[in-house]
Amino acid sequence: MATATNNADELRIQMAQIRRDLHADVRDVVANAEAVADWRRYIRMYPWAALGVSVAAGYLVVPRRRQVVPVPVAIAPDAAEVREVLEQAKEEAKEPARKGLLASAVGFVAPVAMRAAQGYAAQYLETWIAQQQATAGGATPAPPERPGSPGWPQEKTTF
């Protein structure tokens, strides 16, 4: 009986040791996970790589500069000529916007209209084919639902 008690005590001691080791291992895993997720650590360890990544990200995020189109300027312009040139420029600037707006509206509506037209055409063709089959071949009546009812094909048995 003494050996059973000693065995139980040894098991308790081993289990306590395993729990302590497990607790320490979990703490180490948590500390390592926090270290891996800390972005400041990577900046401290690799400052030049972090600088390069930030420059590349800034280059990709910042939009490009707009190109400036030079407008010809008359040396000694007449007021009427200047007004005429300005009005032409305003009209030319408005036309692409109208075309772009109209083109985008057609681009949105055209697929929907095409899908509706295809559905209508398919339905019309199905109806037309069904009518042609009914008039050309004569519609065959469906057999009755249960055997032995009138109209059900009877088998003739001869002995």
Rank of each mutant, 00 (worst) to 15 (best):
P144Y: 02
V55N: 11
A4G: 04
E84A: 14
Y120H: 01
P96M: 01
Q14N: 10
A74N: 13
G119L: 05
T140C: 11
T140E: 13
R44E: 10
K94H: 05
D28K: 07
A35D: 06
R146F: 08
R41T: 01
N7A: 09
G119P: 00
D38W: 02
A130S: 05
P96E: 01
M1W: 11
A50P: 05
P47V: 06
D28A: 08
I75G: 14
A103E: 07
E84T: 12
W48V: 13
V106M: 12
I129F: 04
A4M: 06
A136L: 14
A79Q: 15
A89H: 12
A139K: 14
V53E: 15
R66P: 00
R115F: 10
A116V: 00
A113Y: 05
R98P: 02
E87M: 01
G107R: 06
M114T: 08
T127A: 08
G107M: 07
K94Q: 04
A76S: 15
D9H: 13
N7S: 10
L102H: 03
G58L: 12
P72M: 14
V112M: 09
A116W: 00
E87D: 08
V68T: 07
E126Q: 08
A31C: 07
G52W: 13
K94F: 03
L125A: 09
K99V: 03
L51P: 10
R98I: 04
I75P: 12
A142D: 12
D21Q: 08
A79C: 12
Q17E: 13
P77S: 06
P153A: 02
T135Y: 02
Q14C: 06
A136P: 05
R83W: 09
M114G: 09
V68D: 14
K90C: 07
R19N: 08
Q154F: 04
